[in-house]
C-alpha cells in the first residue's frame, strides 16, 4: 500500500474532479430542460402527443449509457458528410460528445420520473383546479407541475447520483475526469488499488454532497408533509 503516489498526483485528481463536476452539472441542467416538456408530453393521453417522448424515453432507458456515448463519439465520426459539416466542430471534441450523451440519457430518465409523478397526481387536485376555472395550461403550471415535481424529488435525487456514476464514461473517450485521472495514475505507477480507491473516495464525497442537498430540498418542499411541531 503506497498512498504517496496519490498525494503526488493530487493535482491530477483535482483537475479530474473539476471535469466530473462540470460535466455532471451541465448534463443535469441540459437534461432537465429537455426532460420537462418531454415528461409533460409523455404524460398526455393523446397518442399523437405522447408517441415521440415515450419512444425517446424507451430508447434512452433501453440502451446502456456506454453504448450511447460510443455511438455519438465513434459512431458519428464514421460518416464523411458529418465530418465535413459545421456540426463536426461539436462532435470532434470528446467533451461535447460526452455532454450530449449524458444530457440525452439523463433527459430520458428524468422525463420518465416526471411522467410518473404527473400520472400520480390526485384527481381531486386537478378537479379543484378546473372548478376554479383554470385552463389546462394554467392548471399544469400552477397545480399539476408543482405537485408532481415535489413528488418526483426523491426519485430525481437517485437519478442525479446515477448520473454522477455515469460520468465515469467520460474517462473512456479520452477525457481526464476523476476516473480518467485514476486510470492514468494506475497505468503510470501500477497501483490499481490505491488509484481507484482514491477516485472512489472523491465519488463518495460527491454523493454525500448530493444526498445532503436533496435532503435540504425535501425539507423545504416537503414541509407540508411533516408532522406539525408541538
Amino acid at each position: 500500500m503506497d498512498f504517496t503516489v496519490i498525494i503526488d498526483n493530487l493535482p491530477l485528481y483535482l483537475s479530474g474532479l473539476r471535469v466530473t463536476i462540470e460535466l455532471l452539472i451541465l448534463a443535469l441542467l441540459c437534461g432537465f430542460v429537455l426532460a420537462l416538456p418531454l415528461g409533460v408530453a409523455a404524460a398526455s393521453r393523446r397518442a399523437t402527443v405522447n408517441a415521440f417522448p415515450r419512444g425517446f424515453i424507451y430508447f434512452m432507458r433501453g440502451t446502456p449509457l456506454l453504448a450511447q456515448v460510443y455511438l455519438i463519439y465513434h459512431g458519428f465520426a464514421q460518416f464523411d458528410f458529418l465530418r465535413e459539416s459545421m456540426l463536426w466542430a461539436v462532435f470532434k471534441e470528446a467533451y461535447w460528445c460526452a455532454l450530449i450523451g449524458f444530457s440525452l440519457n439523463t433527459a430520458g430518465y428524468t422525463a420518465e420520473i416526471i411522467r410518473g409523478a404527473i400520472a400520480q397526481t390526485p384527481r381531486g387536485e386537478i378537479e379543484a383546479a378546473r372548478a376554479c376555472g383554470m385552463r389546462p395550461g394554467v392548471a399544469l403550471r400552477r397545480v399539476i407541475l408543482p405537485s408532481a415535481l415535489r413528488r418526483a424529488l426523491p426519485a430525481y435525487g437517485n437519478e442525479v447520483i446515477f448520473m454522477l456514476h455515469g460520468t465515469v464514461i467520460a474517462g473512456v473517450i479520452t477525457l481526464v475526469d476523476l476516473f480518467g485521472a485514476a486510470k492514468i495514475v494506475n497505468s503510470r505507477h501500477f497501483v490499481p488499488f490505491e488509484s481507484f480507491i482514491a477516485a472512489g473516495f472523491f465519488y463518495l464525497c460527491l454523493t454525500f454532497l448530493i444526498v445532503w442537498l436533496f435532503k435540504g430540498a425535501e425539507r423545504k418542499w416537503h414541509a407540508h408533509l411533516r408532522p406539525r411541531a408541538a
Binding site: A77, R83, W88, K92
Partner: peptide
C-alpha cells in the same frame, strides 16, 4: 487510429 482517421 479511429480518432486519427476521424481527425480528432
Amino acid at each position: 487510429y479511429l480518432d486519427l482517421v476521424a481527425g480528432r
